[in-house]
Design a protein around this nucleic acid. Structure first.
Lengths: 342, 342
DNA sequence: TTTGAAAACGAAAACGTTTTCGAAAGTGCC
DNA sequence: GGCACTTTCGAAAACGTTTTCGTTTTCAAA
């Protein structure tokens, strides 16, 4: 009792008209009489006709689908960005295919290839920690596929980007620590590769210089996995080896929470003995004790903007117009809570 | 200088052979001579040929893409499930389109329609709090589209499901509270609709009955948004109106963290005065003070299993075999931490 | 009735692939 | 040289849609 799929052909045959006319009627072409249009629309409704998107894709050469590659889904920041992207995409009738690079360059390459083969209309991406300026990214550009990077970007790639001013935001965070009286500030930084880890580090350094605090490279600790455990561990090292540290600027809230956990367990008073400030404004940071000071990153808006930039490019490419490269720098906000109020 | 796309036709013309032979050579058909096959493969590599997936989709009637609808992306449990699904999908060369219903029935309906029109090969779904046994779900079944539900399911829909035994797990959690000496146990439950909120409530009730503790409906508090704030608020109500409550079983960790926040702020000792147990084993629950007891839900595995069930169905449908409905019940684990050790 | 323009329709090509089936060419054997 | 295979190839249909462009029909004005 296999039901036959409703196609234009089926409708055409039932009404004894041509496929062409059926198609036109459904797409509101002007050269079909009101009478036939009505008949077509009614029968289409009755038979639950939906255009075969495979055929439409082939014919129009677009799939109304974009690809998104991010390092990690289970992450407050990234899942918020995803949220923004798919919400905005849906508004514009686009669907989103999500891939997770797991911070692996190899996987990332495979996934870019997958998306290219899939012929998505565009790609949004945040780089894995391992990758930087690589061939797979260049191929996207070379193929003239609309492409937007956000957050973890490569400065070398000529494409639209949505970022924050990491250096400035980090500087502000560290200056805040200085303002509340910190004299010796440690920095738990992100991995070596990612641009934003570099920039936050540079911001840290700049704030010290500006306030005539000498930079000590022994006070910089580099995360590899960017985890709670690393925060805990580095906090321990700091307390053991640098008892005079009175402030810590941490690459991201999750790690900062690890720092707080160690300090709490060892009865080191925050912020009295050591002030702590994180980055990203993770939901959890206002829930723990003491509430964590941090830098708010507009993650949802980042997703929205990234999609809109991509949409612009998609439209430009479609009309064979030259590609416009836009760099969007979103505002961040210093959020001062208990962990840095002296 | 628009480059021409490499198609079978282009390769065929350059080699002066037919499209058919090119296609066969690339797909390892046996009726093409080693010599021509080599020539084809080489040229294909040289021209970076990749099959046009739009055409392949149309021809083969499948897209190697599945759809996933979940209530919320920014949520530890769901993002872990997503993680499992896309990882397993990628292994099997499937891509995943993700949509977020935002707990809205209306959006959910639209999205199901979107996926059906997109002609995805299958759909995985977790229901929004508003929906239950509705037409849009039935249409998926009716159209014979491979379909798997997980976590928030509807018992009425005949399809494969991946769940945990919420009732049993909840019972175990509450019995644990009883074991450590709680005599009057409150329950902060989830919304009215979702099956798992119902089941956890039933588990709570059953544990009380089994231990001859009378059920008091005034000790049950119903979340609407399932938020941190609600936990905080209900904890306040419990302390004000039911000072003799000595244990709380909470629908999920996020809400339980809200409960702990209120109790901490008001110097109510956990677990000495009130023991608390949550659900889901959110990462954060082992980081706060006191560490939260909870029920571990194998979220990643849920994603993996859901995809594999779906794959089974996809294959069955493709071979016109009868659909097998499978119900997978994954194991949970009681995790006892500080918040319930008396 | 003829004419001309406007309205309504349809044939056909195109998108790029897969697959069936028949034809051609090659091989070995008597 | 004829026969029976096997190997290798290609024509063509099919998937379902969109769109161009030419044809037919209608109908008012002359």
């Amino acid at each position: 009792m296999k039901e036959k799929e409703t196609t234009l052909k089926v409708i055409a045959e039932k009404l004894n008209i041509s496929i062409t006319t059926v198609s036109k009627a459904l797409k509101n072409y002007s050269d079909v009489s009101p009478t036939t249009r009505e008949k077509v629309l009614e029968l289409a409704r009755e038979l639950h006709y939906t255009p075969n998107s495979f055929a439409v894709n082939l014919r129009t050469k677009e799939s109304k689908t974009i690809g998104l590659i991010i390092p990690e889904v289970v992450h407050h920041f990234f899942s918020s960005v995803i949220n923004g992207i798919i919400a905005e995409a849906e508004k514009n009738e686009y669907l989103v295919i999500i891939l997770q690079s797991n911070e692996s360059l190899e996987l990332e390459k495979k996934q870019v290839q997958l998306l290219i083969n899939k012929r998505v209309d565009g790609i949004i991406m945040s780089l894995s920690n391992e990758s930087n300026d690589d061939d797979h990214i260049r191929e996207i550009i070379h193929r003239n596929i609309p492409f937007v990077m956000f957050d973890k970007i490569s400065k070398m790639i000529p494409c639209s980007k949505v970022i924050i001013d990491d250096q400035k935001a980090a500087s502000a965070a560290v200056e805040h620590l200085i303002t509340v009286g910190c004299k010796k500030i440690a920095h738990i930084r992100g991995p070596v590769n990612p641009q934003n880890a570099i920039d936050r580090f540079l911001g840290y350094k700049k704030a010290l210089e500006k306030n005539n605090i000498s930079f000590d490279k022994n006070l910089v600790f580099t995360c590899v996995r960017v985890s709670f455990e690393e925060g805990y561990e580095f906090a321990k090292q700091i307390c053991k080896n640098h008892p005079d540290v009175d402030g810590i600027f941490v690459i991201t809230d999750l790690v900062a929470v690890g720092v707080l956990a160690y300090l709490n367990e060892n009865n080191i008073k925050v912020p009295e003995q050591i002030a702590v400030i994180g980055f990203s404004n993770w939901f959890m940071s206002q829930v723990i004790k003491p509430k964590l000071s941090t830098v708010d990153q507009p993650s949802y808006e980042m997703g929205v903007s990234a999609f809109n930039l991509l949409l612009k490019e998609i439209r430009a490419v479609k009309e064979d117009k030259p590609k416009v490269i836009e760099n969007l720098i979103l505002d961040t906000q210093l959020i001062i809570r208990e962990s840095s109020k002296k």
